[in-house]
Amino acid sequence: MNKKLKQSIAFATFRLLGFLVVGVLFYILGFIVYNGAGVISWEFLTASPEEGMSAGGIFPAIVGTLCLVAGSVAIAFPVGVMSGIYIHEYLRNKWVARVIRVMTNNLGGIPSIVFGLFGMALFVQAFGFGDSILAGSFTLALLALPLVIRTTEEALKAIPGSYRAGSYALGAGKLQTIFRVTLPVAMPNILTGLILSVGRVSGETAPILFTVAAYFLPRLPSGIFDQVMALPYHLYVIATSGTDIEASRPMAYGTALVLVAIVLVMNLLATATRLRLGKKTKMD
């Protein structure tokens, strides 16, 4: 009986821990939503910050983040997908494959502030982009790259060899097989990686600190060499160093809620894509 009792105690503890962790998650989310919901309004989303960022809205920051997300994904997605294709479809040398895999994992593990330093040294200074959307997008693309590569690889791995064999048997070449058979089938899972990297990129602060982010710039960018405000940096600024921290608290809650909402939506979207497109390709 004793060991049964031990088991129940242990299992109850684990169950409790599981719900505790989820409880923490919901507490954080709930706290942000509860305090931020009252701030969100049409004006908050479409106006520029005013009065030392304690009033007005966050429109320039939203636009800035959109620019950065679009830019970095436009860079990271094609390169990442091609890289994934190479690793899974072409690479036969086990040793090289291993090196590349280790490198990709390591790139994913490099702290984002190091990317910030690197982006500043390479894109801002060596390439002469200055503090600009271009420099920021390249820097953020470095962060998204491992994510895209890994999901592409996983997606390709999940495709049964018989698909490829069938295509070859019909006389298709390697590239034809990749573009007509492998990629279309793998697309839903690859898109999941794309969407997840959008979520990741939109929340990163450290890489954009020295490559693009502007402290206060209440106008929209006119080109890729412009600086922009960005949501995560804006939140950092108004939470820690605004002219009147207490007065700008509501703005901070609102900004945090918008950021969290973007991440939530992206996560849901990724799941939905996986389910929806996955079903469709199966039916075809």
């Binding site: 962790v21 989820v22 602060t205 945090a256 969290v260 991440v263 939530l264």
Partner: peptide, 15 residues
């Protein structure tokens, strides 16, 4: 739990 990983670090900092 995956969502917990997706929340931006600046939001954790603010919290």
């Amino acid at each position: 739990i995956e969502l917990l990983a997706g929340i931006p670090s600046v939001v954790y900092g603010f919290f």
